[in-house]
Design a protein around this nucleic acid. Structure first.
Lengths: 206, 206
DNA sequence: CCCTTTACATACATTGCTGTTTGTATATAT
DNA sequence: ATATATACAAACAGCAATGTATGTAAAGGG
């Protein structure tokens, strides 16, 4: 029954797909490799061939979507940018769109938020989540600082307060979205709030 | 060795305390009742006497802190209030203070955010979390609507956008705080941002 | 064409936790 | 003073999942 190399890669992806489904359904701890194998139409033997254990399978699953998210944050702001607040708005909308359109991203992040316990080996996941958060924070802080130096921040705001506020907003939005499984109506509402908030950051310049 | 009634209640509390510690340390799934009993200086027999299983123990743990949080939200805004934005600020600061000062609250919510998998019986916990969230949302929406009807909202903002923004901010703040175990420095930073945000909601009236 | 390796399936042994049952000493009621 | 219920400890039975070891059919290299 042995498969060719590309077929093997396919089954590997099938296993990761099955893991997404089962982790979401049963939580990472309760999910047995038996159940995941069954979901993928295989046996545990196949899983242990491709992954050394459940943890490594989990890591493979997160790796697959992490690259999508990281790509969004590679776009550092140009020092000569004329519209830092516009840059911020664009990045934020890209994030919302990613979660709206990419089901893998939604599923995996829902697992991360509501189907995981960050202890033992699993704490590594918290580490990269935090580093991702910090990267995002750095990108936005940089943009807010540029906005401040250009005098584009409304009085009442400084770069630090604005970026902290903004990051909490983004965090909370995604958290509420995934934790309470809000519908697409929520995305609309969020876009509206996002525009109001950014407008308010820079309103006094008009 | 049988204890008196009040002593029994004490051991019950000790068990819940031990559960907090062990759940935080090992996650709810991996935490064995054996380990919790050991942490409390007892045996599993004692736990099974006071609670029917791990789930009920978890519920007892959350019940103990839930009342604290609910109490904060009972203070509905007075229809005749002259300063709805001030009311909102006060409630928000009370929440921050609660998490800063009450260690049980911090521990339990950290468990809720990073040491739980919401599947099976555990989904009940998500239900009351959502209802708590909705209650909080209602309280703040009400206040924002009052502010709007009084013309106290800065132009650019409406009650819906403002309350959505505000709720996401609160959610994100608590989530980041507990997920990444931010220090008390973070609380300061948050207070500052909170003031800026509320100031910006009502800034145009000056 | 043969040998080795790959990509799995199947079978086995171990373990850790759970729920229950039984035991027991002491409050508490009568 | 005796009986009963309480508040636990200790012992027991059972399962479910894990990791490993073995089996096996086909792919790929020489």
């Amino acid at each position: 029954m042995r498969r060719t190399k590309s077929e093997s890669e396919e089954t590997r992806q099938h296993i990761v797909d099955a893991a997404e489904t089962v982790f979401l359904d049963m939580g990472v701890s309760r999910a047995s490799l038996e159940r995941i194998a069954q979901e993928a139409g295989l046996t545990r033997g196949a899983i242990y061939w491709h992954f050394s254990n459940k943890q490594q399978l989990f890591n493979a699953m997160t790796d697959r979507v992490r690259s999508l998210h990281s790509a969004l944050l590679e776009a550092q702001i140009d020092e000569t940018s004329t519209d830092p607040l516009g840059f911020i708005e664009e990045r934020a909308f890209e994030i919302v769109r990613l979660f709206e359109e990419n089901e893998h991203t939604r599923k995996v992040y829902q697992i991360i938020v509501t189907r995981c316990e960050y202890v033992g080996e699993m704490q590594e996941a918290l580490v990269w989540q935090r580093s991702l958060h910090d990267t995002m924070a750095a990108v936005f802080e940089r943009a807010f600082e540029l906005a401040e130096s250009r005098g584009e921040l409304s009085n009442g705001w400084d770069a630090r307060s604005a970026s902290t506020t903004f990051l909490c907003f983004i965090s909370g939005m995604l958290n509420d979205w995934l934790r309470y499984d809000f519908n697409s109506e929520f995305a609309k509402s969020v876009r509206c709030s996002l525009r109001c908030l950014l407008n308010c950051f820079g309103a006094s310049s008009r």
